Amino acid sequence: MAESDDSIDLAWEKPDPLGYGQGVKEVHFIAAPLLAAAALSLSGVVASADRGTFRWPGFTLLLLVVTAMLLIATIQLGYYARKFLYSRQDVYDWIPQPPPEEGTAVEKYLRKWQNDDYQKWLRYNNRANRCFDLGLVLIGLSVAAVLAPPHGHPSDWRTAAAWTVIACTVIEISAIVGMELAVDQRSKEREETFPPTTPPPPAKETASESARSNTARAPRPPRALPPRRLPGGFRHRALRRVAQKKLARGSEGRPTGDRRIP
């Protein structure tokens, strides 16, 4: 049964840390192509070398080819994953209508849409990262195998260089694991110490604003009705004199000038 829009209550997804998407893009589309090109070039050197130049030519060639394929897979998986990483602002910039209000059916649908795509990006991006990490380890072992001196031709310098590459590869693996654990711990601490969101306090009314609001709420004095034309004739002469006196006093008892009734 399809889930209704009203039951969708998902938050907009974001990478953690926020620069993670930019960082993996540099790894997948800059570092991985360069390392893959280096592995393929080195495999060509090993394949065309004379017998006795390398200690394990066949094994070294296999390591280099596997390394190049893993790094190429990193590029392909990273390219496919990058299509599904975007922010809420990207959605609002590209939908053919004004940004919907939060909590509406359209906004909930767009939120679910972004959540589904973000999970797909995360899945393929993690696969690309694993391919890159494994390719990084294998290229270190491949270089060490290339530097190992052949049988019958011992060389202390080549042996030292090979062991240096192996030591740097081990350090690289330790650094990758340590940095991942540090980032996870940092994100967890930030989530635990994040201050709770509270609504902003109501703004205090200034003295001028309070005076204006009191003035606006004060009752207005009643408007004076326009004078009524009294009937003429001898019988209404006294009534006209009384009305003229009232109009001369005004509605608040102050003289307002001579306002004679015709």
Results as ranks from 00 to 15, higher is better:
A160N: 02
L62N: 02
A207M: 05
E102P: 01
P219Y: 00
L225P: 06
K25T: 02
K245G: 12
W163A: 09
G253R: 15
K14H: 11
R260Q: 08
A224I: 09
F194S: 12
V183P: 03
A11N: 11
F84I: 08
D116Q: 03
V137Y: 14
L147A: 05
S142W: 04
L134C: 11
A68H: 08
F132V: 06
R190H: 05
P17H: 06
A203T: 06
P231F: 08
P262V: 13
P98F: 03
P98E: 06
L61R: 14
L10T: 02
L230C: 08
A11Q: 13
Y80I: 10
R111M: 10
R220P: 00
P150R: 08
N126R: 10
N214M: 04
T60K: 05
K245N: 10
F29L: 14
K188A: 12
L110E: 05
T164C: 00
I261V: 06
G52E: 08
E102G: 02
R51D: 09
W157A: 00
E209Q: 03
D5G: 11
E180M: 09
P199L: 15
G78E: 09
D16Q: 08
C131R: 08
D6K: 13
Y86I: 09
D93I: 08
G135F: 15
V45N: 15
G233Q: 04
A182N: 15
D16Y: 01
S142M: 07
P195M: 01
P99V: 00
I261L: 13
L134T: 13
G78L: 09
Y86C: 06
A31Y: 10
V91R: 02
W94I: 06
N115Q: 13
E205W: 00
P15W: 03
A216C: 04
M179P: 01
D9T: 09
P221S: 12
S7W: 00
L85D: 05
A218V: 02
G103T: 03
P200M: 06
A73Y: 11
Y79S: 07
E13N: 08
A238Y: 07
H28Y: 14
A203F: 00
P200E: 07
S155L: 01
A38G: 06
R127S: 11
A207L: 07
D93S: 11
I8F: 01
I75L: 08
K14F: 07
P226K: 12
P150E: 08
Y109V: 03
C131N: 13
L64E: 10
E102D: 09
R241W: 13
V170Y: 07
K14S: 13
R240G: 00
L64K: 09
G23S: 13
V146E: 05
G19K: 03
W94T: 12
R212S: 01
L64G: 10
N129F: 04
